[in-house]
Design a protein around this nucleic acid. Structure first.
Length: 887
RNA sequence: GGGCGGCUAGCUCAGUUGGUCAGAGCACCUGGUUUACACCCAGGGGGUCACAGGUUCGAACCCUGUGCCGCCCACCA
């Protein structure tokens, strides 16, 4: 016998261990089985499971369990990401806390060893947390972006793209993070709005004939100015073009150039040009062949290009000092307060600087072409569809991707430099040496590029590198392309777009057929949760409190497209209760000897009630299957919730009780078998969302008489495929009448304060033959659930009986001795009024000739019927009201 | 500046192709020792579907505009 409630704390670890040990997470071996694969968005090794992971991985697990049960060779390939900056940051912080030396003192090799050490110790944390959630990943295939196979893939891709000219090295302005002393890509720059100032500076003309005023929000950059630009057609400055100004503080003579970039409408119309520290100025500088003077070092301090007094100063200290100098020289022409957006590093949070360095870039524009086409053609479909716009928008305006990072933790760039700076890009040092030998005609010492690759470079290969590429593995042949990617919209650019580009380029086919974008779970302030911000909620605590299934069901039910999810405990509690409800329904079945007989055929069921629940079960199975096949996770969850609680428990079980307690053995046995059958279907349908509780129930009900499939895990049971022919409309109508008769009757009783202990009769005053038959046949049922003594068929309602109308039939409760006349009058008046307004509405509609002539026939007919029904019901109730008399 | 999403009951949200679509859960109120379940059962109150126009026989749903809220991208001398 089942306990009163499910105990997730003991059951979850036990069930998960059993699943995992059985090998059920691996795709089935059957070569005939259709492959269905998904790759996990690899969480950072530094990470611990936050609520966003919980959502994302729950949905993946729901999908993979569903497809696995449908008989597919279902693979959910797990793994983790080495997360360059994030991980390096964590380990550096840890070193600092331990009072050790910094990473630079330690040296590259020792530091990287430390990171691996750390990874071995705590890198597996998130993977175990996924297990607690119930994730049925195939752990035997777990990968890590820095493991040997994936690193080989990275080198191969880098070299191949380099040979194709799609990866190149260039000296250009990049976003520089002075905190981490590395370049970062555009995507890693976060614009933040800040209170800033415009400083207006006067630059004196060389010939002493006057000055030209420029404005800046970054005064320190003037130390690197190499020109002032004015618009070619700006009359004010026409005569000054070609002249020179003497740059204050620095003393350098710089030209006044004419360039369309200068906007006559803005400020003075003249703009200072700092080619080495501003993206627009860089272009101007190139056009005019201006010197590019870099005034910063890697840490964002002023370097030796500036006058002595400024050297070594932090950029913000220098800013102040520059302003002071202008003020002292009486060249400060004004200060304006402005709001401006300032670029920050998304990891470091510090202001990033445009910085002139040698970096490696990917020509993303070329790779993007086919990736755009794939989505245009529908080879890959986004769900919800509108995310395709976001994807296209970015892809069509894609910029070169800066892939080199001045970090130590990551894939070292496979490029070696000779003494003269010639570069040899090869997969191994041996090959590079060989190439160098051919190049120089002798052995020369080579130096490998110090930089590592952007973490997303390796993530971009994830759908095929994890399957063994560049080896031609069986897995790769079988599981690429993957079927569905489930991820958050925050990484569409970082990850999805780049996987599309690399997948198509190297595999010739887009890496997924479908990309499902799940909502992003935000914190209370609406801010995006992230590890580095530390504003994460802990799903594991929720698992402890309510069980994994309750959390999973909640996330699934709330996963409706394109919305933020704000999790609330009462909601999780409610779904925990839902699990308990099912648990107890199973317990009830068990207590009543409901076991599914071998060979039970739902098509052969006789009893109306049983035929009805078979049909309802079929409807639910159909709806859930369709929903899950289409990533309609919330729809599936809600359909299950309604069916299990409001149909199976509230009505089927209640209506079955009299039969189970009755004397008709054949009916009882059939009901027992049907109840057990329906529960089996329910357990299967619910399993993807609530795997633990359903698996436990499956095991606990695997007693005598159960079909053989109970011997195995529910997670490997066959998904129900039930024909629509099992739905019996006649049974639906009959049970519908009974349910309405009971519901309405209960409502009458309660509103009139008839004591619960009272047992009046239920009078059938007026009804069709068919209705009488149904009500007569189910009299005991109705008697029990409506708490009436009997169901009587009489020609007219006696005085003091309370009538109500159900499906055109008039029923009545003779409860004269209990009722409060005023209450009854109020009830009837309310009913009559409500029917009246419906009649008015329908009458108006049907009175409209346009409606009658233009609306579809069936809609008009339906409205006519509704009107007739409402009118009849109102007449009956008005009559009753009249009989009641008084006022 | 460009784009996307949202605005439905006190709260969190469902409402597929316009026609039982005005709903659910929680909260609230009333009643309940119906032997599966109080993590329960029964009943009930509560909304001008942000606003304004338009299309239509008919609009929460389609179109246009407005207003808030949130996000993304770009730019900012």
């Amino acid at each position: 016998m089942l306990e009163k409630t499910f105990d997730p704390k003991t059951a979850e670890p036990r069930l998960y261990a059993a699943w995992e040990a059985s090998g059920a997470f691996a795709p089935i071996d059957d070569p005939a089985a259709e492959p269905f694969s998904i790759v996990i968005p690899p969480p950072n090794v530094t990470g611990s499971l936050h609520i966003g992971h919980a959502l994302n991985n729950t949905l993946q697990d729901v999908l993979i369990r569903f497809e696995r049960m449908r008989g597919k060779a279902a693979l959910w390939l797990p793994g983790t990401d080495h997360a360059g900056i994030a991980t390096q940051m964590v380990v550096e912080r840890k070193l600092a806390q331990e009072g050790n030396v910094g990473r630079r003192d330690l040296g590259r090799e020792a530091f990287v060893a430390k990171v691996w050490e750390w990874k071995a110790e705590s890198g597996g944390q998130i993977v175990n947390q996924l297990r607690r959630l119930g994730a049925s990943c195939d752990w035997s295939r777990e990968r890590f972006t820095l493991d040997e196979g994936l690193s080989a893939a990275v080198r191969k891709v880098f070299v191949a793209l380099h040979k194709e000219g799609l990866i190149y090295r260039d000296k250009r302005l990049v976003n520089w993070d002075p905190h981490f002393q590395t370049a970062i890509s555009d995507l890693e720059v976060e614009q933040r709005e800040m209170e800033g100032q415009f400083w207006h500076f006067a630059y004196p003309l060389e010939d002493g004939s006057g000055e030209i005023v420029v404005a800046t929000t970054r005064p320190e950059t003037m130390l690197g100015d190499t020109a002032v630009a004015v618009h070619p057609s700006d009359e004010r400055y026409k005569d000054l073009v070609g002249k020179k100004v003497r740059l204050p503080i620095v003393g350098r003579l710089i030209p006044i150039v004419a360039d369309e970039y200068a906007d006559p409408e803005k400020g003075s119309g003249a703009v200072k040009i700092t080619p080495a520290h501003d993206f627009n100025d860089f272009q101007v500088g190139k056009r005019h062949g201006l010197p590019m003077i870099n005034i910063l070092d890697d840490f964002g301090r002023i370097n030796d290009e500036a006058p002595q007094a400024y050297r070594g100063l932090d950029r913000f200290v220098a800013r102040k000092k520059v302003v002071e100098a202008f003020e002292a020289a009486e060249l400060l022409r004004g200060i304006e307060k402005v709001k401006n957006t300032v670029p920050h590093g998304d990891r470091s949070g510090v202001v990033v600087e445009p910085y002139l360095t040698d970096q490696w870039f990917v020509n993303a524009e070329v790779l993007a072409r086919d990736a755009i086409k794939a989505v245009e053609q529908g080879d890959t479909v986004f769900a919800p569809r509108h995310w395709e716009k976001t994807y296209f928008e970015w892809m069509r305006n894609i910029q070169p991707w800066t892939i080199s990072r001045q970090l130590w933790w990551g894939h070292r760039i496979p490029a070696w430099f000779g003494p003269d700076g010639a570069v040899f890009v090869e997969e191994t040092e041996e090959e590079a040496k060989a190439k160098a030998r051919r190049h120089y005609g002798r052995d020369e010492p080579l130096r490998q590029d110090e930089d590592v690759l952007d973490t997303w470079f390796s993530s971009a290969l994830w759908p095929f590198s994890t399957l063994g590429w560049p080896q031609k593995t069986e897995d790769l042949a079988r599981f690429y392309p993957t079927h569905t990617l489930i991820t958050g919209f925050d990484i569409i650019f970082f990850w999805v777009a780049r996987m599309m580009m690399q997948g198509i380029h190297f595999m010739g086919e887009a890496p997924f057929k479908r990309v499902f974008i799940n909502a992003l779970v935000r914190d209370a302030t609406g801010a995006k949760m992230s590890k580095s911000k530390g504003n994460v909620m802990d799903p594991l605590e929720l698992v402890d409190e309510f069980g994994a299934d309750a959390l999973r069901f909640t996330l699934t039910a709330m996963s409706g497209a394109a919305r933020d999810i704000k999790l609330s405990k009462p909601r999780i509690e409610g779904y925990r209760n839902f699990g308990t409800k099912l648990w107890n329904a199973t317990r009830f079945a068990q207590m009543n000897g409901c076991a599914r007989a071998e060979g039970f055929d739902p098509a052969k069921v006789q009893g109306t009630l049983n035929r009805w629940i078979v049909g309802e079960t079929v409807r639910t199975a159909t709806a859930v299957t369709a929903a899950l096949a289409d990533c309609g996770f919330d729809e599936a969850a809600n359909a299950l919730y309604r069916f299990i609680w409001n149909v199976y428990c509230d009505w089927y079980v209640e209506l079955a009780k009299p039969i189970l307690n009755g004397t008709d053995e054949a009916a009882r046995d059939e009901t027992r078998a049907t109840a057990a059958w329906a529960l089996d279907v329910i357990l299967k349908l619910l399993h993807p969302v609530m795997p633990f509780l359903t698996e436990e129930l499956w095991a606990q009900t695997a007693g005598q008489g159960a079909p053989r499939e109970h011997a195995g895990f529910l997670m490997t049971a066959r998904w129900p495929e039930l024909p629509e022919s099992l739905i019996d409309p006649a049974a639906d109508a009959e049970i519908g009448l009974i349910i309405d008769a009971i519901s309405e009757g209960r409502s009458v009783r309660q509103e009139l304060n008839v004591p619960p202990s009272a047992r009046p009769a239920l009078l059938v005053v007026e009804a069709t033959e068919a209705q009488r038959g149904v009500l007569a046949a189910s009299a005991p049922l109705i008697a029990q659930l409506l708490r009436v003594a009997e169901v009587k068929f009489e020609g007219a309602a006696p005085a003091g009986s309370i009538p109500y109308v159900v499906a055109g039939a008039t029923l009545a409760l003779p409860v004269a001795e209990f009722i409060d006349l005023a209450a009854e009058r109020a009830r009837l008046t309310k009913e009559v009024a409500s029917l009246g307004s419906e009649i008015d509405k329908l009458g108006k509609k049907l009175g409209n000739p346009d409606f009658v002539s233009r609306a579809p026939e069936e809609v008009v007919e339906e409205n006519r019927e509704r009107l007739a029904e409402a009118q009849a019901a109102r007449a009956k109730l008005e009559a009753a009201l009249a009989r009641l008399g008084g006022a």
